[in-house]
């Protein structure tokens, strides 16, 4: 195993472990089974979105519209559930609704070559305001009995959410690493021109990645919605930044071509734990945002520091020690 390849992931993991050690000493109750289970369930939707975001970032693009897409999918899920649609069909429908919105981004970015940050900025505003206009912020209430926890018991539902999330995560992680489809994403992100010459259609890869991003957002919205018996009209605000931050903290390069889903998992775990950790440590919640910002910046600094060491090590072995 070549550890130097996973340097960034290892440094993020180091930070995570450090937090866990502090927690183990100061607030051992953090590691109660109940708390770990809650953390897992609460961060499952974020993880799904971060998986999609990792691929988007790997091809060198970005998607800041996922928070608004999430809100649209949540409301759509509630509405579809009220028509009495069985759960598996609902799952598929939301997958398609999300994929549809993602494909719209993908077409504009991949085929028409528009800059992703602008396209998704437009969609961020567009979907959110369209939803507000139509629903006027109303909640979807009186959902059918079989909606919450997929009609199972609470623990059964929780298990299903975790199982679905982990299956998706493992499938994508394995595909990215081992299958042609996954390697194409890295190829396009590393050097679009070289990929083209190698016979990879960049636009199609970008389109598929955005479509998957949307579909994963849809599933994430559903995984989030089934935990409750009502669906609020304005969810997912700021979710895009959370996902991007997790991916970057997990070691992916925003310029594309570098990053792994294992890193993303660590990033989600790190940022998803901070809020809860602060409460357990008794630190005032006012500082939460500042700490999150600091973590992103520290990840950047460590990234650069590690990068420098590597460069020095290659050109001048003596210099690396200094």
């Amino acid at each position: 195993m070549n550890f130097s390849r996973y340097k960034r992931e290892i440094s993020a993991a180091g930070a995570f472990v450090a937090i866990l050690i502090v927690l183990a000493i100061v607030a051992p109750s953090f590691f109660s089974a109940g708390n770990l289970r809650d953390l897992l369930i609460n961060n499952a939707p974020t993880l799904l979105i971060a998986v999609g975001m990792t691929m988007v970032i790997l091809v060198g693009e970005i998607d800041i519209s996922v928070g608004s897409q999430f809100a649209v999918c949540s409301i759509a899920a509630g509405f579809l559930a009220k028509t009495g649609m069985p759960m598996p069909v609902l799952f598929l429908s939301i997958f398609l609704v999300g994929a549809m919105m993602g494909s719209l981004n993908g077409v504009l970015v991949g085929w028409l070559r528009l800059p992703s940050i602008i396209v998704t900025l437009a969609m961020l505003v567009l979907w959110r305001d369209a939803l507000r206009w139509l629903t006027e912020g109303a909640w979807v209430q009186n959902l059918p009995e079989n909606f919450q926890w997929f009609g199972l018991s609470q623990s059964g539902g929780e298990l299903t959410i975790v199982a679905i999330t982990l299956t998706i995560f493992v499938a994508f992680a394995w595909t990215l690493r081992n299958l042609v489809a996954g390697r194409k994403i890295y190829a396009v992100g590393s050097d679009a021109e070289a990929a083209r010459l190698a016979g990879i259609s960049g636009p199609t890869v970008v389109l598929s990645v955005f479509a998957l991003m949307g579909a994963l957002t849809g599933i994430a919205a559903l995984m989030n919605a089934v935990r409750f018996s009502e669906i609020p009209g304005n969810s997912g605000v700021g979710l895009e930044l959370k996902a991007i931050a997790a991916v970057v903290v997990g070691g992916a390069a925003i310029t594309g071509g570098r990053g792994t889903l294992v890193g993303t998992l660590i990033g989600v775990a790190l940022l998803g734990t901070i809020g809860t950790a602060l409460t357990f440590l008794g630190i005032n919640p006012f500082w939460e945002k500042a700490i999150q910002g600091a973590i992103i910046l520290i990840a950047l600094v460590s990234d650069v520091a590690l990068g420098r060491l590597e460069k020095n090590g290659r050109s001048n072995i003596a210099g690396a020690a200094a």
Partner: peptide, 27 residues
């Protein structure tokens, strides 16, 4: 400094300070 000295991408640097500045203001 983060952008020129560390050669870090502006999008990520300012995403970090986006949280940081607001967080300090709230804190």
């Amino acid at each position: 400094a983060m952008i020129t000295k560390l050669k870090a991408p502006p999008l990520i640097v300012t995403l970090g300070t986006f949280s940081l500045f607001r967080g300090i203001a709230e804190g």
